[in-house]
């Protein structure tokens, strides 16, 4: 842009502001003006005065803070700068971690975990300590089914939202993160015995660290991971203190064996919290990626 063009454009912009100073603009909801109109605006967006983008009830340049915000809003098409910035942060996040945000893929695994936990405390033979060969087979079949179900759910995501290839840098970061977590798991594995008192708190503690790390490394956009990590930590501390919410509820209903109860607790917490994470990831994806417009005619 040449100096003459810059000066001309600047003169026009100043004229717009002067014109706006003497007019009263209609009220407009910040939420509706912040994000939704972005696409619809695009067709008619042009340099110049856009009264429909004003989001404040009071258009007055004498009140400097309000006036200047509105002036910025009008001239930059950013109806609510903070909201638009937040929207673009979400866009960046979704584009960066799209394959990881397809939460419904993990839903069958979460359901299998919950089903296994309930089976462990309900089945009278398991409770009585009798051999149950079909239990392991059934769990493995369910697990295989859940893993197979990932494929059609992935196809559905690709058809509904399209596909994105993660950048090499992020792939390497994800790999590094997984390796560190696996190393941590290997280091604490000797401490954990299936019937020992430390199995549930140590595993939950590790998962909490994983959730907090995931939240931190992915740009702090998905706060539900922090909440889920927090819940895991609280549950872990409760188990250390000898309080198991799941075992307490199960004991009241089915009177399971204490050893099975510990294992069932772990499956139950893992299942429920994975389910919550999966649904919230999917919700984040759906909220960031609206449905495309239909072609006219």
């Amino acid at each position: 842009m040449t100096a003459t063009e810059t000066a001309t454009t600047s003169r026009l912009l100043e004229k717009d502001v002067r014109r706006a100073r003497h007019s009263q603009m209609p009220a407009r909801s910040p939420a509706s003006s912040a994000l939704a109109p972005q696409a619809s605006r695009s067709a008619s967006s042009s340099a110049g005065f856009r009264s429909d983008l004003v989001c404040s009830t009071n258009w007055s340049l004498t009140a400097t803070s309000v006036g200047c915000t509105n002036w910025f809003v009008m001239q930059t098409n950013l109806a609510d700068p903070a909201a638009v910035e937040a929207h673009h942060r979400r866009v960046r996040y979704v584009a960066t971690y799209f394959p990881l945000l397809q939460g419904l893929r993990f839903l069958p695994l979460a359901v299998v975990c919950i089903a296994t936990s309930i089976w462990l405390v309900v089945d009278s033979r398991i409770v009585a300590g009798q051999p149950t060969p079909w239990f392991a087979v059934a769990v493995n079949v369910l697990l295989a089914g859940a893993l197979v179900a990932i494929v059609p759910i992935g196809v559905w995501y690709r058809r509904r939202f399209g596909s994105v290839t993660m950048s090499r840098q992020k792939k390497q970061l994800a790999l590094l993160f997984t390796l560190i977590t696996a190393l941590l798991a290997l280091l604490v594995a000797p401490v954990i015995t299936p019937s020992g008192p430390w199995m549930v708190p140590v595993t939950l503690g590790l998962c909490a660290v994983f959730c907090a790390g995931y939240y931190w490394f992915t740009g702090k956009i998905a706060p539900h991971y922090l909440w889920i990590g927090g819940v895991m930590l609280v549950l872990g501390v409760l188990h250390v203190a000898g309080v198991s919410p799941f075992c307490a509820a199960a004991s009241a209903l089915w009177a399971p064996a204490p050893a099975n109860c510990q294992l069932a607790s772990l499956f139950f917490y893992a299942g429920v919290l994975s389910l919550v994470a999966a649904v919230l990831d999917h919700r984040l994806l759906v909220r960031t990626l609206p449905r495309a417009q239909e072609e006219p005619g």
């Binding site: 972005q38 696409a39 996040y93 584009a95 058809r159 399209g162 290839t165």
Partner: peptide, 17 residues
């Protein structure tokens, strides 16, 4: 923010026809 994306993803993202 990514290596590449397909047309449908960008359509979902922008909500455009």
């Amino acid at each position: 923010a990514c290596a590449s994306a397909d047309f449908l993803f960008l359509q979902s993202l922008t909500g455009l026809s």
